[in-house]
Design a protein around this nucleic acid. Structure first.
Lengths: 150, 150
DNA sequence: TTAATTTTATTGTATTTGCAACAAAAAAAT
DNA sequence: ATTTTTTTGTTGCAAATACAATAAAATTAA
C-alpha cells in the first residue's frame, strides 16, 4: 500500500506551519489566513460554506471567523430575505492584506513544485482533485455521525 | 497558478478529521494515531525524530507522546550510552491497536484512490514525494526562525 | 581540554480546535 | 396548515497546539 495520504499529511502540516509563522507579520493568528482567503474570493459566502470548503469543523470556522470580524478583517451582514444566514465580506483592511497572502501562497506553490514539469504539475493537480472529490463524501458522511464500514 | 497546495490542505484536513473520529473507539485522542504509528514502525525512535517525520512542532510531539505513555500505549526508555535521549517503544497495548490503525488508513487510502489506475497512483505517489522533499527544507528553515525571501 | 554550539527534552502560557448541546429560522414532508 | 427535518449559528467545555523560555547532555570548534 502506497502511503499517499501520509505524504499529503506531511506536506499539509509543513505548509500550514510555514504560513502561520509568516502571517503573524500581518496580525493573523493561526489558521485565519485560510478563512480570509475564501471570504475574499467569494464575498457574500456564509460561514457554513466556508467550513465545508476548508474541511474544518463548523464551530472552529465560527470562532475563527468571529475573530476575523473582531479584528476588523471582515464583516458579517444580515441577508435580505433570510433572517438566519450572515453573509461575509472582507473589509478594506482585509482586502489590503489579501494580495500578501496570495503572494505567500504562490511562493510556497513555486517552492513545492520545483523540479516538476508543466505537464507533471497539470497531472498532479488533476489527480489531487479526484482524490479530494473521493474523500469529501466520506468526510461529510463521518462528520454527520455516520459510521464507515470496512 | 494551480492551487495544488489548497487541494492538499483540504484532503489532509478531511482525512485527519475522519481518522480522529474513528480512532476514539480505541481511546486515542486527537492526533495520537500519527505518533503511535511512527513509533510502532520504528521502535527505538526518539521524539525529536517523530516530530520531524510528522512535521509537527517539537513541543506538540512531546506532549502527545507523553500522553501516549501515560495511557499505556508506549514506553520511554533511557538509552545505553546516551543520557539525553529517550527511545520510544510500543507496549503490548500499543502493538495491539496498531493493525486497526493500519486498517483504517488503508481503507482511507482505498477510498481516496478510487478510480485511479495503478499507474496514476504510482505517479501521484512519486510526485507527492518530490513535493514533500521540496517543502521540508523550507519548513525546517522557517521553523528555526529564519525568514524566507520572496 | 575548554569553550561554543547543537541536540534533545521539558514546562508555562496563550490560543485554537472540535465535540456536545442548544436555539431558531428555513425547507421539506405529511 | 402543521409537523418534521435540515440548515445555520452559537456557547460551554475539554483537549491539542505551538511559541517562548529553560535546562542539560552531546557534539563540534577553538
Amino acid at each position: 500500500m502506497k502511503e499517499i495520504l501520509r505524504e499529503i499529511g506531511m506536506i499539509a502540516r509543513a505548509l500550514d506551519s510555514i504560513s502561520n509563522i509568516e502571517f503573524k507579520e500581518y496580525d493573523l493568528t493561526r489558521g485565519q489566513y485560510l478563512y480570509l482567503v475564501r471570504i475574499c474570493e467569494r464575498p457574500g459566502i456564509i460561514q457554513e460554506k466556508v467550513a465545508e470548503l476548508i474541511k474544518v469543523d463548523r464551530t472552529t470556522a465560527a470562532r475563527s471567523i468571529k475573530k476575523l470580524e473582531m479584528n476588523g478583517f471582515i464583516v458579517k451582514k444580515e441577508a435580505e430575505h433570510n433572517k438566519k444566514i450572515k453573509k461575509l465580506y472582507p473589509t478594506e483592511k482585509g482586502k489590503k492584506i489579501f494580495p500578501f497572502i496570495k503572494r505567500e501562497n504562490d511562493h510556497s506553490n513555486t517552492v513545492a513544485l520545483a523540479g516538476l514539469s508543466e505537464e507533471e504539475i497539470e497531472n498532479l493537480f488533476d489527480l489531487l482533485k479526484r482524490v479530494r472529490g473521493n474523500l469529501e463524501k466520506d468526510w461529510e458522511f463521518v462528520k454527520k455521525g455516520n459510521k464507515r464500514s470496512y
